[in-house]
Each structure stands twice: as structure tokens, then as C-alpha cells.
Simulated assay, not measured.
Amino acid sequence: MLPKHQRIRTAAQFFETQRSGSRFGNRNVVVSANIRFSADDAPRAGFIVSKAVGNAVTRNSVKRRLRAIVTELFNRDLGVDLPGGSVDLVVRALPASAQLDFDELQESTTHAVHGALRKFMRRGQ
């Protein structure tokens, strides 16, 4: 579970990450990544799981899996050298994510996160 200081919770934070960041997706998830240059070093993540994914039980299951995957990514390393900033991620689950098992969702999400970060880094150069 992500601690409170590592969560994107307000509409303004979601909007800023999605508008200023770069987006990369596949058939299961879409990830928006933005690097912020502020005093707060903790990476943050927010999750969007709409009703199109399924009923409440399915949506909460997908959200819990995504939280676990992103927490593990933050604990390991994102695999990208961040130039003095911290990363914000917004992960949007697509309807196909409800049918995946954990390993497939993890592979799909990790690929999308790394793709969004690579895209952001290329855009900044």
C-alpha cells in the first residue's frame, strides 16, 4: 500500500500529471508520467479505474493489484535516471485489465510505466 504522501489524490494533481506529462499505453493500461522538480522527493501515483472495467468488486481488485505493482516499482527503482526530480504517475486501467492475472498485469503496467518515462525523457532533451 502506498503511504499517504505518495498518493495523488486531488483533481488538480491528476490534471497536472496528465496534462504536463507524457502518456504511454497498451491494451490494458495507460500511464501518464510527469517529473516534478520540488522539495518533496517522494514519487507519487494515482489510479483511475472506471465503471467500464467492471462492477465495484472487479474495480477494487484491479486497483489493489495496480497499487501493489506501482509500490513494488517505487521500492525497486523505476529504471530511469531522473534528473533531480521526482516522478508522478497516473495509471488508468482499461476494461481488458479486469481479465488479466497478476503477472500479466504487472508486465503490462511495468512496460507502460517505462515507456511513459522514456517518452518524457526524450521530450525533455
Rank of each mutant, 00 (worst) to 15 (best):
N55I: 14
K4W: 11
A93W: 01
A39P: 09
S20V: 07
V49P: 06
R19K: 14
H111V: 10
R65T: 11
V80D: 04
A112R: 03
G46M: 04
R76Y: 12
T71P: 13
L89P: 06
L117E: 00
G21P: 12
V57R: 04
D88T: 00
V53Y: 02
L73H: 02
R67V: 00
K51I: 10
S97F: 04
R9S: 10
G79T: 01
V113D: 03
D81C: 01
K63F: 13
D40N: 09
N75Q: 15
E72K: 14
S38T: 14
L66N: 09
E104A: 15
R92H: 14
T58A: 15
L117G: 05
K63A: 15
D40V: 06
S86D: 07
R118N: 14
G115K: 09
N26K: 12
G85Q: 01
K119A: 13
V30W: 04
I8S: 00
F15L: 08
G85K: 03
G115S: 07
D101Q: 00
P95Y: 06
V29Q: 10
H111G: 05
R64D: 07
V49T: 09
I69Y: 06
Q18K: 05
G115F: 12
A39G: 15
I8H: 09
L89S: 05
T17K: 11
S20P: 09
S20K: 08
E107P: 03
R44N: 05
N26F: 13
Q6C: 11
V62I: 08
S61R: 15
V70F: 09
N26Y: 13
S86G: 10
M121V: 13
F47C: 07
A112S: 09
A39H: 08
T17P: 11
N75E: 15
H114W: 09
D41H: 06
D40W: 09
D101W: 13
N26A: 14
K119C: 10
R92N: 03
P83C: 09
V62Y: 07
A56Q: 01
K63D: 02
I8Y: 04
F74T: 02
S50V: 13
F14C: 02
R9Q: 15
R27P: 03
S97V: 03
Q13R: 05
V49G: 02
V90T: 08
A96K: 11
D81A: 15
G85S: 00
G25Y: 05
T58Y: 08
